[in-house]
Design a protein around this nucleic acid. Structure first.
Lengths: 137, 137, 137, 137
DNA sequence: GTGGTCTAGACCACC
DNA sequence: GTGGTCTAGACCACG
């Protein structure tokens, strides 16, 4: 597995362990990680991402709780068999939730729908051309 | 001044003082609060929102730091003269930043642009009909 | 009496009543205000400076306490007879005290004596040419 | 790091949190604190200075706002990489501002330039011999 | 009455 | 362990 789908941002307000958990979820949903496959050990992942092993462990634990990962005695953690569809559902829910929140605040700020959609279009286009940086959520 | 523009949500992760600061910024940007006008005293605002005066004070202090509010010794706080345009700029920046972050994560999750825009449209429409509630981000 | 020696700065951290008291003291020390002379009434002074009468009253009261002003029954306040020398002493003390404080902080910041004296010279010269504005102390 | 550069004076009118912030700024400017280095934790600093942790936290927060400190999640606060030059600029500005204010008042008091410079020299010399204490500004 | 500062103590999330 | 937030209450200076 390449870790191309990981972009840990230590200063954007979102807990690191949650970023890890989410991105693994997304990777499973997208098929980059296949059910049955093993994921890197806690300490390996920690080393790659240059973060604290406890943080990785916490993300893995959370993913076990929601049925994405499964521990295989003595060997490590694997993607659960039914995980893909579950991850797709979670992905939709997570993304829609965030979209909803942002739109709520945007309308609350008394921007018009047109102005909001304009912003969405502009940002969408920008991401096609250059790699955007993301700060605080 | 009516306090219709305030919706403090104690459990959405965003610090209360920041919610207060943001919504005042938005109100100034939208013209609901006019430059020169005085804003409710720390104690009064705290009473209305049922939060601690220190929390309000912190929001007000932050708004002074960025040049939105101005302290008038012994009398209270007023909206600075040039605040409106500054608030509009800040509003755009804040909202666009959030939009950008969400879109970044959405694309990173390997949803297609069409799927993302579909979500945006759906959520946008939902907000036209019913008052959406937002939980955690 | 012309009020040319007054420059109330509402936003420099120094209490307004103290600015008033100090500047009257300085005016007496410099001879702009003569012993025996009456000073403007509280409300007149307040009107001229566009500040609260209570603030002026407080400054006057303080000046009575230190023996600069003297109340004349039914007519107002006058400069006490021995006030001039006393004001000169106070002036020296006040100014030296402030100079001392600034130099203390400057040396504490680990600027060299040369750098500090350089700053002093530059600022001194600037005040010869243009009218300098003073912000926070 | 030794805390030799700290002298909190609870009764000189300057807020304690600002004294803390300033002296840290000066220490960074002077190189006593190096970029990348961690500064004592809020609680530790509070203990050393015998003040409330919240007061220290406020100073640290302010230093984050101006880009001197940087928060490292769960571990502490470090001096930002570009902080040194920024602190030097701030130091010059702060000191010059104070010098300017004092000179403005001194000239306004109608002392001659010679008298003022005399005071400066005297105070400067005094600080070479004995440790001067400063009371109220 | 106003804002500003400081203290004290609790709770939380993160590492 | 760390910082961050929030509450509560006191005191002060100013008008």
């Amino acid at each position: 597995m390449s870790n191309t789908f990981f972009e840990i941002n230590a200063s954007n307000g979102i807990p690191v362990y949650e970023q890890v958990a989410r991105q693994i979820t997304f990777a499973v949903a997208a098929g980059s990680l296949q059910p049955g496959e093993m994921i890197p050990s806690v300490r390996e992942m920690a080393r790659e991402l240059a973060i604290n092993p406890n943080t990785v462990a916490r993300a893995y634990r959370q993913l076990q709780d929601v049925g994405v990962l499964e521990s295989v005695r003595g060997s490590g953690l694997t993607i659960q068999s039914g995980a893909k569809s579950r991850c797709k559902t979670m992905r939709s829910r997570l993304i829609r939730e965030r979209i909803s929140n942002v739109l709520t605040e945007a309308r609350q700020s008394q921007l018009t729908d047109n102005e909001i959609m304009e912003f969405v279009q502009v940002e969408m286009d920008r991401k096609h051309t250059k790699r955007g940086k993301n700060d605080r959520a």
